[in-house]
Amino acid sequence: MPDMSAGNQRLSISQTIGRWLIYAVLILFALYFLLPWIVMLLTSVKTMADIRTGNLISFPREFTLEAWKSAWSGACIGVKCGGIKAYFFNSVKMAVPAVAISTLIGAVNGYVFSKWRFRGSEMIFSLLLIGCFIPFQVILLPMARTLGNLGLAQSLSGLILVHVVYGVAFTTLFFRNFYVGIPTELVNAARIDGAGFFRIFFRIMLPVSKPIFVVCIIWQTTQIWNDFLFGVVFSSGDTQPVTVALNNLVNTSTGVKRYNVDMAAAIIAAFPTLLVYIVAGKYFVRGLTAGAVKG
C-alpha cells in the first residue's frame, strides 16, 4: 500500500481517527461473515422450546447435544430415520476416489500439455478449457441416460465417474500451469541422457509437484464434497451424498420443524471442507485464484 506516513513518525489526529475507522469497518464485516456460523452453532445446542422463546443470538438456557445426536443418527430423511451419518460416508466414499483419480489424470495431462507439446495439443487444451466452464445443465440429460446404459444409474460409482470426467479439465489446468513454470531445459537434458516419458515424469516432475498436488486435491475435495447438482440428479435414496441429504432434511416438512437438528446437520455437512480450509487455507486461496484468474 502507499505509505503516507513515511518520514514523519507522529500521526496526526485525523490519521488516528482514520485508523480507528478502518479497524471498526473491518471488524464489523468480520462479524457479518461470522454471524451465520455463530447462529448455527448456538441454535444447534438449544432445545426447541428455547428456540421458540429466545432469539437467533440468545445464549442457550439449557445446553444440549440432543440435536447433534439426532442429526447424526436419528433424524428422518425421506422414509429412513438414521440421520445423515450414512450420507456423510457416501460423500466420503465418493470424494476420495474421485479426487484421487482426477488429480492423477490431471497431473499426467498437465505434464503432456506443458512439456510434450505436439501439433494440435494447444487446440486440445483450449477444447478442454471450455469444458471447465460449461453450465452442467447442458450435459445432465445425456449423462443420466448414459449412466443408465452403463448400469451405473443412481450409484456411487456413477457419481464418481461424473466427478472425474468433469473434474479433469480443472486438474489438468492446474498442473499444466504449474509445470509450465518448471524449466524445460531440465526435461531436455534428461531426454538427451536417454530418459523416457515416464522416467522424466516420476524422477523430475513428481518430486517438485507437492504444492500443486496440495492445491489440486483441496480444490477437488471442496468441489466434489460441496456438489449438489450432480448428487441430486445422479443419485437417489441410499446413494445420496450429504449435501442432498441435508437439503432433504431441511426442506421436507413432515411433522414439527426442528431447527436445531437442521443446524447441527448443516454443520456436520460443512465440517470436512471447513477443516480443510482451516488447516490449509493458504493453498485453498491459491487454488481459487489459480483456477479462476488464470482460466
Binding site: P36, T43, L56, N226, F228, A266, A270, G281, V285
Partner: peptide, 19 residues
Amino acid sequence: YLYPMALSFIVTGTAWKWM
C-alpha cells in the same frame, strides 16, 4: 472473510434460511 467460500451453497442456504 474467506471461509464462506469453503462451504457448499446448500449449507449457506440452510444457514440463511434460518437467519
